[in-house]
Design a protein around this nucleic acid. Structure first.
Lengths: 229, 229
DNA sequence: GTCTATAGGCTGATAGAC
DNA sequence: GTCTATCAGCCTATAGAC
C-alpha cells in the first residue's frame, strides 16, 4: 500500500510546488506589464490574474496583498540590476581612479543593456521605475531597493571629484539618476517636439546623448564651484 | 407686482451663477490637491467633492466626467504659465540674440516663480505635471497644452545653436524639460541620498544648480558635434 | 445650481471544499 | 496549490425634485 505511493512521489515529486513557482512568475509578469502601462491604482487584481490566466484567489494566496505583489515586482529585477551595476563599478575601480564619465557609464549602461535585451519584461520594468521615481508614495521602496547601490556610486563620484562639496555631488548625481530613469523609460515627448525626427522609444539613441549631456552637467557645476571657491 | 422683482434682480443679479463659479473653483482646487499627491486613479469623485465641501452630483454637473475635470485642472494653470514664459522669451529676444542660458532661464524661471509663490496650488500643480510627464496615457494633454509654447523655445534654441542639427537640439531640450519637471516638483530622492544635507523640497536651491547643469549639458553636446562634424 | 437617491458595476480580500 | 462563491464596500454617472 505504501510502496506505490512512494514510487509515484519520486517520479513526479511535489508537482504542486512546481506549479506554484510557475504561477508566481505568471502573476508577476502580468502585473508588471499592466502596472507599467496603466499605473498601480488603475490596475485591479482581476485584470492581473485574468491576463496571467490564473484564478483570482491565487494572487492573494501567493502575494498576500496588492501592495506586496507590487513590491515583489520591484524587488525581482532590482536584485539583478544592482548586481550588474556593482560588477561594472568594481571593474573600473580595479583599473584605478575612474572618471565621472566612467562612473556614470557603469551606472547607466547595465540598465540600458537590460532595457534593450530580449526580455521585454525589462521594458515594462523601466516604465514602472519611472513612475516610482515621480510619486513620493513609493519613495520608501526606491530607498529600500536602490539606495544601497546608489550610495556606492555616490562614494565613487565623491572620490572622482574631491574638490566638490559632497552635497553638490549628491545634487548632480540625483539629476543624473532622474534623467536616466525618465529617458530610458522611453519617454515619447520628443516624438512630437522633434516633429517625428526622433523617437523616445529608441533608447539606444537616447543613451548616446545622455552620457555626454550628464558629464557636461557635472563639469559645469565643478567649474562653477572652482570659480567661486 | 413686477417692479419689486426687477429691483431685487438688479440688487442681487443671478446669485446662482456666482455660486456656480465658486463651486467650480472649490472642486478644481480640491481635485488638484488630491490628484497631485495620490495620482489620478487613486482619487475618487467622492474624495474630491468631500474635500471641496460640495455634493457629489455637483462635480459631474460642472465638469461632466472625471477625465474632463482632470483636463480642466491642467488647462487652468497652463494658460498662466505659458503666457509668463512667452513674455520672458519675448523680453530676451527683443534685446538681441539670446544665449542658451538665457533661453533656458526664460523657460524655467517663470515656472519656479509660480511654484514658490504664495498660491500653494502651484506646488500641487508641479507634482501633477511631473506625473503627466511620465505616463504616456497623458501625452495628448501635454502636447495640447504645452507644445505650442515649447515649440517657440525650441526655435529660439535652434537659432542660438545654428551649428547643431535640429534633432540634437530637440534632444537636449527634452532633457532640460524632463529634468526641470522632475526637480521643480520637489523630488525627495535627494533627501536620503544626501543623508539629510539637502532637501528636494527646497526648489529654489535646486534651481541654482539646475540651470548651470543644463547649460553644461547643452555645451558638451555642442562640443561633441563640433568635433565630429 | 443644488439636492437626494440610486443604478449598475467594480474593488481587495477571504472562507472553505478539493 | 487551486478552486468556487461571496462579503462588504467602493466606484462613476445619472434621474428627477426643488
Amino acid at each position: 500500500m505504501a510502496s506505490p505511493k512512494i514510487v509515484s512521489q519520486e517520479a513526479a515529486p511535489d508537482r504542486s510546488l512546481v506549479r506554484g513557482r510557475d504561477t508566481k512568475a505568471l502573476i508577476l509578469d502580468a502585473a508588471e506589464a499592466l502596472f507599467s502601462v496603466h499605473g498601480y491604482d488603475a490596475v485591479s487584481m482581476r485584470n492581473i490574474t485574468s491576463r496571467a490566466g490564473v484564478r483570482l484567489a491565487l494572487a492573494t494566496y501567493h502575494f498576500s496583498t496588492k501592495e506586496s505583489l507590487f513590491e515583489s515586482i520591484i524587488a525581482r529585477r532590482a536584485e539583478v540590476l544592482n548586481e550588474r551595476r556593482l560588477v561594472a563599478l568594481g571593474a573600473i575601480l580595479d583599473r584605478g581612479a575612474p572618471t565621472v564619465a566612467q562612473i556614470l557609464t557603469s551606472f547607466i549602461k547595465p540598465y540600458l543593456d537590460l532595457r534593450v535585451s530580449r526580455d521585454v519584461g525589462w521594458r515594462n520594468y523601466s516604465l514602472l521605475i519611472a513612475q516610482l521615481a515621480q510619486i513620493n508614495r513609493w519613495l520608501p521602496l526606491v530607498d529600500k531597493y536602490f539606495n544601497p547601490t546608489a550610495h556606492r556610486f555616490h562614494e565613487a563620484l565623491c572620490a572622482a571629484l574631491p574638490e566638490l562639496p559632497k552635497p553638490v555631488v549628491s545634487r548632480c548625481f540625483v539629476f543624473a539618476i532622474q534623467l536616466m530613469v525618465s529617458e530610458l523609460a522611453g519617454n515619447e515627448r520628443i516624438d512630437t517636439l522633434s516633429q517625428g525626427a526622433l523617437s523616445g522609444n529608441d533608447v539606444k539613441q537616447v543613451y548616446l546623448d545622455l552620457i555626454p549631456f550628464l558629464v557636461g552637467g557635472f563639469e559645469a557645476i565643478a567649474r562653477r564651484e572652482a570659480a567661486s571657491g
